[in-house]
């Protein structure tokens, strides 16, 4: 026995040591890549946002908050910021409201569940640029089927993507179409996680109407799902880029300029790296603020300990 004891002590020590070195060996590639490709560049971006650097310029100067000061007075940036926020404020509640409705409808019966789920989910996996092109055809002012349909009921044609009054409306509609399936699938997952016995209990407790059961069981138990969906959808909306790049390029007259597209134009068309970096920082701050609100403030109200 003494031999066994004497042996086991150092063995354990080497095992732990071996475990630690193996761990470092396993983490190293990912760790290096994480610094080189994500954390490092993100820090560089933050630094660049305080510089006046333009691509190709031999020198750069540190100009403090000048880029941000310029953003504050730049009407294009104001348009981009307000359009992005409008887009979030319209597309997020609309896709969540409609998505919850569709999910409840799909879940409330047994017929064609998988079919409808697939149909509503289709836009999520479709190449958005290509589908935007299809939308462009649908919404074409002269030959588009949408205007032709409207003409049949006597409504004058609308220049959906070409007029500054309608362009955000059109982009928001496409945005809802694009995000709806995502929301539906998340809500469906949330709904199936609600124990069936709770509905049975609600019915025996006297919750006669579907609305009573929704208020007593469905809505409170969907709380965590809803919060998650709100955050994710808001971030997806904040990132709106593809439809703008493919359909309007921010036009007409900056009426559909959004944050990421403006950042793209300033950085990669005009090569104003410093200015573009400042826009990216604003974008990042909004994203972080959203996540902070989710984790710090709201999380506690929807999780029942």
């Amino acid at each position: 026995m003494p031999e066994a004891l004497a042996l086991s002590a150092p063995r354990r020590a080497t095992a732990v040591l071996g475990e630690a070195s193996a761990a470092w060996f396993l983490v190293a590639p990912a760790g290096i890549a994480l610094f080189l490709l994500l954390l490092g560049p993100s820090a560089a971006l933050l630094a660049l946002s305080f510089s006046d650097w333009e691509l190709g310029a031999p020198t750069l100067a540190w100009i403090g908050f000048e880029n941000y000061a310029e953003l504050a007075t730049d009407p294009v940036f104001r348009a981009a910021l307000s359009n992005t926020l409008v887009y979030v404020r319209v597309v997020m509640p609309a896709s969540i409201g409609l998505g919850l409705g569709v999910a409840l409808l799909i879940e409330s019966g047994t017929r064609l569940r998988a079919f409808f789920r697939a149909v509503y989910f289709l836009p999520v996996v479709s190449l958005l640029v290509a589908m935007a092109t299809a939308w462009q055809y649908l919404l074409h002012p002269t030959i588009g089927p949408v205007n032709k349909l409207l003409a049949m009921v006597g409504i004058a044609p609308v220049n959906w993507l070409g007029s500054s009054d309608w362009v955000m409306v059109s982009l928001c509609m496409i945005g809802v179409w694009e995000n709806l399936g995502f929301v539906v699938v998340l809500f469906l997952a949330g709904l199936t996680a609600i124990p069936a016995d709770l509905y049975a209990a609600a019915e025996t407790d006297g919750a006669r109407s579907g609305l009573d059961r929704f208020r007593l069981v469905t809505w409170p138990l969907l709380g965590p799902t809803t919060l998650f969906v709100v955050t994710i959808t808001a971030i997806r909306c904040l990132r709106v880029f593809d439809t703008v790049a493919a359909l309007t390029r921010g036009g007409p007259n900056n009426a559909s300029e959004v944050l990421l597209h403006m950042m793209y134009r300033e950085g990669f068309s005009y090569f104003r790296i410093g200015y573009s970096a400042a826009i990216t920082v604003v974008f990042l701050v909004i994203v972080l603020a959203l996540m902070l609100v989710q984790t710090r403030l709201l999380d506690r109200q929807v999780h029942y300990g």
């Binding site: 732990v16 475990e19 630690a20 193996a22 761990a23 470092w24 396993l26 983490v27 760790g31 994480l34 490709l37 994500l38 954390l39 490092g40 560049p41 993100s42 560089a44 971006l45 660049l48 971030i235 990132r239 880029f241 990421l260 950042m263 950085g267 790296i273 573009s276 970096a277 990216t280 974008f283 990042l284 994203v287 972080l288 996540m291």
Partner: peptide
Amino acid sequence: LRWRGREWAFGLVMLGLLIPYHVPALP
């Protein structure tokens, strides 16, 4: 695995989760 620095490394991963891929694009 148990190793010193694990919590710290996981913190970096969580930090990375917060950053959309558009952010490092420019650099």
